[in-house]
Simulated scan of single mutants.
Amino acid sequence: MVCSIIAITLLALGLASNIIGRFLYPQFYDHSCPRAQEIVRNVVAKAVAKEPRMAASLLRLHFHDCFVKGCDASILLDSSGSIISERRSNPNRNSARGFEVIDKIKAAMEKECPHTVSCADFMALAARDSTVLTGGPSWEVPLGRRDARGASLSGFNNNIPAPNNTFQTILTKFKLQGLDIVDVVALSGKLYSSFTFCK
């Protein structure tokens, strides 16, 4: 039940933060990469079969990516030049997991459809598929996001709700994302636990 609420809330978060001046729709890759969703589903299924906790890790990775600047895959960027990786932020350091699964999806996607499917889109698909694999609902994922060209380390350090934040601080951070107290109850704390409730 809690996983279902988290998944639905993430869907709302993804929609709210991505429909800005462009139209996203589930069939975006139907012609350019018809197997895109199948590729993501297969890689995620293998990863979760090997390690069930990975489903929650992929969901959390997507949540963190969406919460700061929208669902733009900026969390995947490595430090280089003027970019300081968001992986080095306090909320992600030594806790964000699932990058190796995303790398496998990327490799499979590039083999099938080079330079076509955005990382932001297959991260959203991976979060949905992880939810389904743990008994949660399925939904159509709007596609057509663009990948970020920059990262926001300060955004992560300042905006991601922390386990030691006061309730009022957490509520304020959620409200800044267009979320309410129901979303706080569904998401806060649970995304920082071991996710055993999702197994």
Rank of each mutant, 00 (worst) to 15 (best):
A12S: 13
L77N: 04
L179N: 02
K50S: 15
S57W: 12
V141P: 01
V2Y: 08
D147Y: 07
T116M: 10
E110S: 03
S32A: 15
S193T: 14
I83S: 05
A124E: 04
T172K: 06
S79D: 02
D65H: 09
T169S: 11
I5Q: 15
H62F: 13
C3R: 11
P163S: 00
C119L: 00
R35T: 15
A151M: 03
S4E: 09
T166D: 12
M54R: 06
G135K: 05
R97V: 03
R128L: 07
A56N: 08
G136Y: 06
T116F: 09
G155K: 06
A162R: 14
C198T: 13
H115I: 08
M1L: 12
P52A: 04
F174R: 10
G136N: 03
L187V: 06
M123L: 14
P91T: 09
I84T: 14
D30T: 12
L187H: 07
R146M: 12
M109P: 00
R97Q: 04
A96Q: 08
A126G: 06
F67W: 13
R35C: 03
D30P: 00
T169L: 13
P142A: 07
R35A: 10
D183Y: 11
R88F: 10
D121R: 03
S89K: 07
Y192G: 12
V185I: 14
N92D: 05
A96H: 00
Q37C: 01
Y25C: 08
G155V: 10
R87A: 06
N158D: 14
C198F: 12
Q168L: 09
L133T: 01
C198M: 14
F63Y: 11
T116C: 11
Q27E: 15
K104F: 04
S85P: 10
K111P: 00
R97Y: 02
A12I: 07
P163D: 00
G81R: 01
S118W: 04
T172N: 10
